[in-house]
Amino acid sequence: MSDTAPSPSGTEPGSPRLSTDDVAKVAQLALLELSDDELNTFTGQLAAVLDLADELNQFDTDNVAPTAHPFGLFNVFREDVPVDEIEGGDRAAELRAEALAAGPDVEENQFKVPPALGEAP
């Protein structure tokens, strides 16, 4: 059975499937900054994991539908009721204050960020 089961020794790091350029692009998409050393290390490690996908190709899935959720749920809806009507008082304002309290930088009931375009002076 050892020839069909996934094995940690059955893969080799540094697969040609993945280059450091690929990983640099993925890191940029994911908003992560990598040093050159990290880029090399991660590329080998990620390539080894991607090689696991070869295990999947022994199974024919041509006429198989994908599963995103184990029990195929449909949309679940509820009534949209203002929280003040449920809990009374000015609960909405309290919740807003609690949510804003977690913000690293808050001004006038809004989360504040550096400029989206250009750079801060």
């Binding site: 977690a102 913000g103 690293p104 550096p114 400029p115 989206a116 750079e119 801060a120």
Partner: peptide, 15 residues
């Protein structure tokens, strides 16, 4: 932006 660690950056993307 809304919670958790923030490190400074000159613009939103770099932050």
């Amino acid at each position: 932006v809304r919670y958790g660690l923030r490190q400074p950056g000159p613009n939103t993307a770099s932050m």
